[in-house]
């Protein structure tokens, strides 16, 4: 489904379905990308799609970090990093790797690697959850 969604974006609108870029565009923090209303509608669709899925199948299983601090720190760094690196799991991961973009392959290997190191360090420090 994620692949089909990204394919619709590419073949329908000629653009990359990169969530970090579209999110920044939708709230006016980026000048690149589609018309702002298109980004806003995509973001709304993301929220509604997950809600509809839950409506059909029942609650989506999810376990969050034990403290809000993880979400605040993770969110801040994710927001800054995805803008600096021009993409996240969707843009570099799904869209970039599938066109064999060297740039995206480097980004994906890097963020999966740094994510693994981060989790390992948190575990070693006794903060695993």
């Amino acid at each position: 489904m994620i692949g089909i969604a990204a394919a619709i974006m590419l073949l329908g609108l000629g653009r990359i379905a990169g969530v970090s870029g579209l999110a920044a565009r939708s709230i006016g923090l980026s000048d690149a990308g589609p018309p702002r209303i298109v980004a806003m509608v995509f973001i709304a669709g993301l929220i509604l799609g997950a809600l509809a899925f839950q409506g059909v199948t029942g609650p989506i299983e999810s376990t969050y970090p034990p403290s809000m601090g993880w979400l605040i720190a993770g969110g801040l760094i994710t927001g800054f990093g995805t803008r600096l690196g021009s993409g996240c799991t969707s843009g570099h991961g799904v869209c970039g790797m599938s066109r064999l973009s060297r740039r995206s392959i480097v980004a994906v290997v890097t963020f999966i690697g740094s994510g693994m190191v981060t989790v390992a360090i948190v575990n070693l420090a006794g903060g695993g959850w």
Partner: peptide, 18 residues
């Protein structure tokens, strides 16, 4: 550098933007 930072955030929160 952006990808390194994003990975750190992803690892801390367990969530990416999507």
């Amino acid at each position: 550098l952006g990808a390194v930072l994003f990975g750190v955030g992803w690892g801390l929160a367990g969530l990416c933007p999507g």
